[in-house]
């Protein structure tokens, strides 16, 4: 049995050591989780939009069923007209432009740190 007294001997033995075989289905499971992963049937924003539409519909149905259709419709039209009127003001356009600019600026940033940097930060 070798005792690996010299550095060279140990180095040679280490470099000659072969990697163990991974589980037989490792590659298949990785590929299934990545490139063969079925795409989601709906996009997240579609779920949100559908949820909002459903909530609005339920609110209207409840309002109608309670015999308060007229005030509900009045409230709805009131909100819509207020919303439309606010678009006529220059300040609204200004803040929309500021918000849009901020969104574009943030989307250009690369907020993902390099893995090495993350490790360094953690330490």
């Amino acid at each position: 049995m070798k005792s690996y007294d010299s550095d060279d001997e140990l180095e040679r033995a280490l470099f000659a050591l072969e990697l163990e075989e991974p589980p037989a289905d490792l590659r298949a499971s990785i590929l299934t989780a990545t490139i063969y992963r079925p795409p989601l049937p709906v996009k997240p924003w579609e779920v949100w939009a559908l949820g909002a539409a459903c909530a609005l519909l339920v609110w209207l149905l409840v309002a109608v069923s309670q015999g308060a259709a007229a005030p509900a419709m009045a409230a709805l039209t009131g909100y819509l007209s207020e919303g439309l009127a606010s678009f006529a003001q220059p300040a609204t356009f200004f803040w929309i432009a500021v918000g849009g600019g901020a969104v574009v600026w943030i989307s250009q940033l690369n907020l993902t740190l390099a893995p090495g940097a993350q490790q360094a930060q953690r330490r």
């Binding site: 049995m1 070798k2 690996y4 140990l10 280490l14």
Partner: peptide
């Protein structure tokens, strides 16, 4: 490598 050599020597 130092620790490895020690472990292997102990084993031997």
């Amino acid at each position: 490598k130092e620790q490895l050599r020690r472990l292997l020597a102990q084993g031997a």
